Simulated assay, not measured.
Amino acid sequence: MSEVKGLDVAIMGREFRVACPEDEQEALLASVDYLDRKMREIRDSGKVIGVERIAIMAALNITHELLNTRIAGSFDIGEFKSRIGSMQAQIEQAMADQDDLF
């Protein structure tokens, strides 16, 4: 298990300290970059004013993207992880069976 450390990030010029395992820092930074870009796009459109409203609109847009990806692509990350785990168990069982042959 990776050690959890504080990581300083900036979103729309505001600094935040976020607890994050070391092995997930790269993914967190990518997420921060994505959120920052989405929020700036909304702010720059001029249709939404106020950081709180911009954050809510960004959250709604990102959630909409996620749900559309799941529905349109029939892709569910939880199901995907479950299937990978099942395949891994089957491979490990097959390898164990092969060890018994020799």
Results as ranks from 00 to 15, higher is better:
37 R>N: 10
86 S>Q: 13
27 A>K: 11
35 L>T: 06
101 L>H: 00
20 C>N: 08
57 M>Q: 13
79 E>S: 08
17 R>Y: 03
59 A>L: 11
56 I>P: 06
75 F>Q: 04
61 N>L: 06
102 F>K: 05
24 E>I: 03
62 I>T: 01
69 T>D: 11
79 E>H: 13
102 F>C: 02
39 M>T: 06
29 L>R: 15
42 I>Q: 13
98 Q>Y: 07
81 K>W: 06
43 R>V: 00
16 F>Q: 14
72 A>I: 07
2 S>K: 12
1 M>S: 02
41 E>L: 12
15 E>G: 02
99 D>Q: 13
9 V>N: 02
94 A>S: 10
75 F>H: 10
89 A>Y: 07
7 L>T: 11
5 K>V: 13
82 S>Y: 06
69 T>K: 14
28 L>H: 11
12 M>T: 03
86 S>H: 12
16 F>D: 10
100 D>P: 00
1 M>T: 10
33 D>W: 05
38 K>A: 11
94 A>K: 12
35 L>Q: 04
41 E>Y: 04
30 A>C: 02
54 I>S: 05
15 E>K: 15
23 D>Q: 11
57 M>E: 14
64 H>M: 05
65 E>V: 07
21 P>W: 14
93 Q>V: 02
27 A>V: 03
83 R>A: 13
88 Q>N: 11
62 I>G: 00
86 S>T: 08
52 E>H: 05
2 S>E: 07
18 V>N: 10
22 E>F: 04
25 Q>Y: 04
31 S>G: 14
